[in-house]
């Protein structure tokens, strides 16, 4: 069973063995509204945790998606680039943005699990 971890910037990373799938959280997609544009990083790019990695835009806002963990980009979701509305429909599923090969699994410990993220959301607003 895969685990999902969250950042305070509302990215998620779904851990699948030595790899992680990155996207924006359900909360983030709701806040953003209709996503009209999504751009994933190029395959092969080395990311450090916290680097701006991808971009998602609504009509009135542009948001950076920061890498939740370090690693090399090994795949991007071209489907979501063509149909950015997938992020609104299924942020944690078909709305994923890119997949990285994790370079430091220890970093994941700093991220929030589902329950911690839910608590964190309650502290906002």
């Amino acid at each position: 069973m895969s685990q999902v971890r969250y950042t305070k910037d509302h990215e998620y990373i779904r851990i699948e063995g030595a790899e992680g799938v990155v996207g924006i959280s359900e909360h983030a997609q709701q806040q953003l509204g209709d996503v009209v544009f999504a751009e994933a990083p190029p395959v092969g790019k080395m990311l450090k945790a916290g680097d701006p990695a991808a971009v998602v835009e609504s009509v009135k806002a542009a948001s950076d998606v920061f890498a939740p963990a370090s690693g090399e980009v090994i795949a991007v979701n071209s489907e979501v680039e063509a149909t950015p509305g997938l992020i609104n429909e299924d942020a944690l599923g078909r709305g994923w943005l890119f997949r990285i090969k994790l370079s430091d699994a220890a970093e994941l410990a700093k991220l929030m699990n589902e329950a911690a993220y839910a608590d964190y959301l309650k502290t906002l607003d």
Partner: peptide, 10 residues
């Protein structure tokens, strides 16, 4: 994130 909640679809 956009917290302005501006609907853009009719």
């Amino acid at each position: 994130m956009n917290k302005q909640g501006r609907p853009t679809r009719p």
